[in-house]
C-alpha cells in the first residue's frame, strides 16, 4: 500500500513537472518565436484565435505570470487547448481524429512485436546455442542501432522498385472514403503494412534479448531441474515453469511500451505521411502551430506516465517481492 501511494505521489509530481515544463518552455525562449509565428499567421486566421494564442503563450504581457499559469492549468484540465492554426479546427478535434490511427498502427505493432519477440526469446533460450540462439541476438543488436526511419526508407525504395502500385504514404487512399466496408479495410491494411514492418524490425530485438536473458537465468533454477527430474514434457517445463517466471521483466516492459505507443513512431509516421499523433506533432512543429504542439506533447507525456504507473502496479501484483521491498 505504501509502495502504491509512493508511486502515485511520484506520478502526480511528474505530471505537475511536465505541465509546468510545457508552460515555461515557450516563455523562456530568447527572441520570440511566438511573435514571429503571430506575424506569419496575421490576417490568415481569425483575430480571436490569435488572441487565444496570446493568452496561452504569454505574449499578452498585461496579465501576470501567476494568473497566466492558473489559466493555463484550468484550460488544460478542461481540455480547452485552443485552435490549431494549420488545421483550422479546435486542437481537441485534430487530436481525436489522429489518435486512433496511431493506436491502430503502433498499438497493434507493439502487441505483435511483444508476442513474437517473447516467443522467439523463449525458444532461443530453450535451445541455447542452437541455430536461432546463435543467429538472432547479433542480428538484432545491429538492427536496433539502425535508425528506425532509415529501415522505412529502404522499404519504400524496395517497394517502389518492385511493386510500384503498392501504397507507401498515408493511412488510406485519397480516393477512398472511410467506412467499415471490406475494400476500405484492405486499403487501410495495405497502407499500414510498410510502417508496421519498419517498426517490427527495429523493436523486436529488445523483446527477444530481454526474454532470452531472463529465461537463461531462470532455466538454471532448482525448480526447473526438479521439473526435469519429475520427467515432465519439455514444452510444459518451457512454458509453465521457465517462461512463466521469466516473463516478468518483459510484461512490465510491455505495460510501459503501451504508454510509449503515442510517442513511439514519430519518425515512421512522418516518413509514411501516416496521419497519426506523431505526424501532426511534426507538422505542428514545422509550421509553428504551437497550440497543437503543446497539447500533443502533453497527451504523449500523460500516456507514458499512466503506463508507467500501471506497469508499477502490475509488477507489484505479479511479483510479491517488490511489495515488501517498496
Amino acid at each position: 500500500m505504501r509502495h502504491a501511494l509512493r508511486r502515485l505521489g511520484f506520478f502526480l509530481v511528474t505530471l505537475w513537472g511536465c505541465l509546468t515544463l510545457n508552460f515555461v518552455l515557450p516563455r523562456l525562449m530568447p527572441g520570440s518565436p511566438i511573435i514571429d509565428m503571430m506575424a506569419k499567421y496575421h490576417g490568415r486566421v481569425s483575430p480571436k484565435a490569435l488572441a487565444a494564442i496570446e493568452v496561452a503563450f504569454g505574449v499578452d504581457t498585461h496579465t501576470n505570470l501567476v494568473v497566466q499559469y492558473f489559466q493555463y492549468l484550468g484550460n488544460t484540465f478542461t481540455g480547452n487547448f485552443g485552435m490549431s492554426l494549420t488545421q483550422t479546427e479546435p486542437v481537441s478535434q485534430v487530436i481525436s481524429g489522429a489518435i486512433w490511427w496511431t493506436i491502430g498502427l503502433i498499438g497493434v505493432t507493439t502487441v505483435l512485436g511483444f508476442i513474437l519477440g517473447t516467443l522467439i526469446g523463449i525458444i532461443g533460450a530453450w535451445r541455447r546455442g542452437g541455430f536461432l540462439d546463435g543467429l538472432l541476438p547479433p542480428v538484432f543488436v545491429i538492427a536496433t542501432s539502425i535508425p528506425f526511419f532509415w529501415v522505412g526508407m529502404l522499404l519504400i525504395l524496395f517497394v517502389s522498385r518492385f511493386f510500384p502500385t503498392f501504397p507507401t504514404s498515408g493511412a488510406y487512399s485519397y480516393s477512398a472514403t472511410p467506412s467499415l466496408s471490406w475494400p476500405f479495410i484492405v486499403d487501410v491494411l495495405q497502407h499500414a503494412l510498410l510502417p508496421a514492418l519498419a517498426i517490427l524490425v527495429t523493436t523486436i530485438g529488445g523483446w527477444i534479448l530481454t526474454m532470452r536473458n531472463t529465461m537463461v537465468t531462470v532455466l538454471a533454477e532448482d525448480y526447473v531441474r526438479m521439473a526435469r527430474a519429475k520427467g515432465l514434457p519439455g514444452w510444459r517445463i518451457m512454458f509453465d515453469y521457465a517462461a512463466r517466471n521469466a516473463m516478468l521483466p518483459n510484461l512490465s516492459g510491455f505495460a510501459m511500451s503501451l504508454g510509449f505507443v503515442l510517442s513511439g513512431a514519430i519518425a515512421v509516421e512522418y516518413l509514411f505521411s501516416y496521419q497519426g499523433v506523431g505526424y501532426y506533432l511534426l507538422l505542428a512543429v514545422v509550421n509553428q502551430d504551437y497550440a497543437l504542439m503543446q497539447a500533443l506533447f502533453l497527451l504523449i507525456t500523460v500516456a507514458v506516465l499512466v503506463a508507467i504507473l500501471a506497469a508499477d502496479i502490475l509488477t507489484a501484483i505479479l511479483d510479491p517481492r517488490t511489495r515488501t521491498a517498496g
Partner: peptide, 13 residues
C-alpha cells in the same frame, strides 16, 4: 530489467 522499455522509449524513431 529496465532495458526493454528504455530501448523503446529512447529510440528516436
Amino acid at each position: 530489467y529496465v532495458a526493454p522499455w528504455r530501448i523503446r522509449a529512447e529510440r528516436a524513431r
